[in-house]
């Protein structure tokens, strides 16, 4: 899917992560992570990020992640929300039936 507009989901509060997605037409994925636990969880956060972007078939985007110690499912939720907003699409609830 195409990133039609910049979108943000999540907050800077403890246990949350703020995900921002910006259009980056033709220039691939540029993922920037800032985390209070980057050394420990950086790779897993990036892995989740790439997985969700792949589920949305987003290939061109600048993604900024500001992690405040979020659990994996919170990260996933924020990414899904940001992707839906950026691509102006609704979440496919039937996708995990």
């Amino acid at each position: 899917m195409i990133v039609k507009q910049p979108a943000v989901a999540g907050t800077l509060e403890s246990s949350d992560i703020q995900v921002s997605i910006f259009p980056n037409p033709g220039n691939g994925l540029d993922i920037q992570l800032q985390s209070i636990a980057k050394a420990q969880f950086g790779d897993s956060i990036l892995e989740t990020t790439r997985a969700v972007l792949a589920e949305f078939e987003i290939t061109d985007a600048v993604v900024s992640l500001v992690d405040k110690g979020a659990f994996d499912w919170v990260i996933r939720s924020r990414l899904q929300a940001a992707c839906c907003r950026a691509t102006e699409s609704k979440f496919n609830w039937k996708g995990e039936d």
């Binding site: 989901a9 999540g10 499912w73 919170v74 996933r76 939720s77 924020r78 899904q80 929300a81 839906c84 907003r85 979440f91 609830w93 995990e96």
Partner: peptide, 12 residues
Amino acid sequence: DSARLLIYNTVR
């Protein structure tokens, strides 16, 4: 929208 996703992923 974001709350719905957060709740879904948490409960499921």
